[in-house]
């Protein structure tokens, strides 16, 4: 028996918004520790990894490890039937072929119950090696979304450069080019770009903006985002989900032909 209670539906709604454009179907792997999801997009360029700790949820139980095969679009639609503040319970019996959703209104005067059919999903699980990154940049998630959106109007790719001066995002297209630079300066006043850079080596890498745009759908989950880069390895983009867990995205770099 698996059962997880969220004080508000909004976390689950935001998690689904942050994953459904990359992944159609995914196994939600539930264990005594919590809920984990790992899935690649269909072109095998990016990967999303979600972790929610059971002991940080309103309540959680999972006696036997269980993989719940979920169509992300269907789950998104069912969660739209909940108000953001509804207490939300998701439940599945061992060997069940459905997941049950219960939404309770704030005043506890309305209860809705939905059942969603589960799927058998053959998923490939990738081992992600522990990586010491050359540069880790913490910045406002809103600012990151803005930069990705702005540079997407110029080109398909972004070149990210991190050095001791700061981080620069650059895009080139048929009609022109653009760059956005953020300075790393811990002594500046509050209200400035509020960016911290942990740097051991300068890096310069190219990435497809199309995928970064999908990643920025996670911005409502966290005020901050962390970008971790090393030469010739996938970029890691992480959004913390309060104390409950995180959503991490990995994106393979582009290489010059």
């Amino acid at each position: 028996m698996f059962e997880a209670t969220f004080n508000q539906a909004s976390i689950l709604k935001q998690v689904l918004e942050a994953t459904k454009d990359l992944v159609n179907d995914a196994n939600w792997d539930c264990s005594a520790e919590g809920i984990a999801l790992q899935a690649m997009d269909s072109s095998h360029v990016s990967l999303v990894s979600l972790s929610l700790r059971g002991d940080e949820l309103a309540s959680y139980r999972c006696e036997n490890q269980i993989s719940l095969g979920i169509n992300m679009n269907t789950m998104t639609k069912i969660l739209k039937c909940a108000e953001n503040n509804d207490r939300t319970i998701i439940r599945a019996d061992d060997d069940a072929d459905v997941m049950v959703f219960v939404f309770e209104s704030e005043g506890r005067d309305k209860t809705s119950k939905y059942e969603m059919k589960l799927m058998d999903i053959d998923s490939e699980h990738l081992g992600i090696p522990e990586q010491e990154y050359s540069a880790t940049v913490q910045m406002s998630s809103k600012e990151f979304s803005r930069i990705v959106r702005d540079l997407s109007t110029i080109g398909e790719n972004v070149e990210i450069t991190v050095d001791k001066e700061g981080i620069t995002f650059g895009a080139k297209g048929e009609s022109g080019s653009g760059t956005v630079s953020l300075k790393s300066n811990p002594s500046v006043d509050e209200g400035s770009s509020n960016i911290t850079i942990d740097l051991t080596d300068s890096v310069k890498l190219n990435f497809a903006l199309r995928y970064l745009t999908f990643f920025t759908k996670a911005a409502p989950l966290s005020d901050n985002v962390s970008l971790s880069l090393s030469a010739d390895v996938p970029l890691m983009v992480e959004y913390a989900i309060g104390d409950v867990g995180f959503i991490r995205y990995y994106l393979a770099p582009k290489i010059d032909d």
């Binding site: 690649m40 095998h44 360029v45 490939e124 699980h125 497809a208 393979a252 582009k254 032909d257």
Partner: peptide, 14 residues
Amino acid sequence: TPVQNDLQEFFTLV
């Protein structure tokens, strides 16, 4: 133009 790498070149199937 840069060519897109495949993620599976970096991560191994487990």
